[in-house]
Design a protein around this nucleic acid. Sequence first.
DNA 1: CTGCCGATCTTGACTGATTCAAGAAAGATG
DNA 2: CATCTTTCTTGAATCAGTCAAGATCGGCAG
Lengths: 139, 139
Amino acid sequence: MPDFQQQLREVALRVTRPRLAVLEAVHAHPHADTESIIASARALLPEVSHQAVYDSLHTLTDAGLVRSIKPAGSVARYETRTGDNHHHVVCRSCGEIADVDCAVGHVPCLTASDSHGFVIDEAEVIYWGLCPDCTSRPQ
Amino acid sequence: MPDFQQQLREVALRVTRPRLAVLEAVHAHPHADTESIIASARALLPEVSHQAVYDSLHTLTDAGLVRSIKPAGSVARYETRTGDNHHHVVCRSCGEIADVDCAVGHVPCLTASDSHGFVIDEAEVIYWGLCPDCTSRPQ
DNA sequence: CTGCCGATCTTGACTGATTCAAGAAAGATG
DNA sequence: CATCTTTCTTGAATCAGTCAAGATCGGCAG
């Protein structure tokens, strides 16, 4: 279990109980949506407000301690695995998300053939398909 | 200008004035959001309801005549360029979107190293960065 | 050309994730 | 411990998108 208190100090953020609870919740349930994170955080800190969770998630995302994912058709989801350029595979049927590393190399697809003058700093890849459960249980 | 009436018939959809107006609007303004499409469609068909536009966009998307894009932090956007596996670059500052072809080849990044048993049918890539305007005009 | 049937459209209300705002509480620093 | 901000609580608001009921229209059969 990472030292979340330490992580917060390293990015010059105040150590507050809501933030610790949110970090722990996101770490324990990768790819969880905000509602689930609120529930998990309240297991640790019963009176935390939903707004504090939203604020914490934004702050932690800006600081790079958590990463948010928003596949089309899904609400925002969060994870603590950051800074390693991994991607996600999303089930079209049930919305299940899993991590994947791109086969192409360290900086996959970062080179667009013609970027129209844009200065690109990140390539985000979402693989769409069916998870094992939904594949074996059609309809 | 493509024959939208013909396109609708080819996918067994009824040819209605709202659908023609929506197709024409999306074709004329690639990457436009729903509100803009409603406005453009009303230039052609003044009394069209927002619900008809939403319905048409869904139907046309399901039929493959238009494609929707939902970058994180943006509302849904649409384009008529479909079926060619191109990707998008999105400006973090102003939200501007441009098309890009992936340099890697025809099926970029479609091979994940470990897909956790998912059956993958599409890889969606979004490049994040700054557009030329926002690069030259910082802050 | 006319009538019918089901798909599609209009109207209007509603939902729900996320945001905004004002005041209260609580980290951090000296 | 005192002070100054930042952060949190509370409660309301926003807004893209959806739902539902009835009216209308496109396509096809006669």
